[in-house]
């Protein structure tokens, strides 16, 4: 997924995020990206060997290798900020994809290993393209979830912030924002 011609949004992605916890640590973020119908059709056309029908394991492997992993150069278009500090993102695992006849959805996990600091911790997660070739929109309902968040008393919700794009200047966007407590 390189960033092609004319940098206004031409690819539209609805996304949701699930923060994964294990005991007293944050171990990852699972993201689901659903492409608009037109880009979905292009992906389907380019990376499957059949004209219709659901994706086969071979299609998914091909999408992962030839399309999705290219996004590693762009830190998978995902920003994760832990207690005010942006984390480097180099890896995405557990890739899977599905196609419902209209739209393509990618699911993958950004692995993390975050031990909370004493007191209140914050974790901001969002997918964003600074060139705004891709418009990421947090879904309207059930956008943010937590798995095994009880020991950390983790609470997550969507929050509106303003981020800078290279072409459009500041853009209002929605992110997943979590608060949780350290084992003081």
């Amino acid at each position: 997924m390189t960033a092609p011609a004319a940098a206004h949004p031409h690819v539209f992605i609805d996304y949701s995020a699930t923060v994964l916890c294990q005991r007293d640590k944050v171990v990852g973020v699972r993201l689901a990206w659903t492409f608009d119908e037109m880009y979905s059709a292009s992906l389907y056309q380019d990376y499957t060997s059949h004209p219709t029908g659901p994706l086969t394991p071979a299609d998914i492997a091909k999408l992962n290798k030839e399309a999705f992993q290219d996004a590693a150069e762009e830190h998978f278009f995902t920003d994760i900020v832990f207690n005010g500090k942006a984390l480097p993102i180099t890896k995405a695992t557990d890739f899977s994809a599905s196609y419902d006849g209209r739209k393509m959805t990618y699911r993958f996990t950004i692995p993390l290993d975050l031990a909370p600091a004493p007191g209140v911790n914050t974790l901001d997660v969002d997918s964003f393209d600074t060139e705004f070739y891709i418009d990421y929109e947090l879904v309207k309902h059930d956008a943010v979830a937590v798995e095994n968040g009880a020991p950390l008393k983790m609470v997550c919700a969507a929050a509106a912030i303003t981020k800078d794009t290279t072409t459009f200047g500041p853009l209002t966007t929605h992110i997943a924002r979590c608060r949780f407590s350290g084992s003081a």
Partner: peptide, 12 residues
Amino acid sequence: GGFVAWLAERQH
């Protein structure tokens, strides 16, 4: 920024 985001959503 809100207008640009709105415009993008309409395009979507």
